[in-house]
Amino acid sequence: MSESDVFAALANPTRRELLRLLRDGGQQPVQRLADHFDMRRPSLSEHLKVLKEAGLVTERPVGRQRLYALRPEPLREVADWLSPYEAYWRGRLGALRDVLDELDDE
């Protein structure tokens, strides 16, 4: 699992919707997830596979069903990457550099 796998997994609206359903509804079987979508089961299974490979969901067989659950850890890494204050300070340091470049040496 790499960071790019996580970003690729999140770049699809169906997969984001799947994550949202798992976040709000807890772990659930694939059929209950499928009820929310107007697509064939195999397509949905393909999306779940991508999420699983990115480490964003776990799959657990219970009886004849497979239960899917959200695994939020990779999202934490993405959130860290998005840390708004880090971007803010990088921007400010760039501005500081500009000020220094315009400033006379003393």
Partner: peptide
């Protein structure tokens, strides 16, 4: 959060800014 940057100016000048 940790960020660092190289500035091509001496510490005295950076300190002023």
């Amino acid at each position: 959060i940790r960020v660092d940057q190289f500035l091509p100016h001496p510490p005295a000048k950076v300190w002023r800014a």
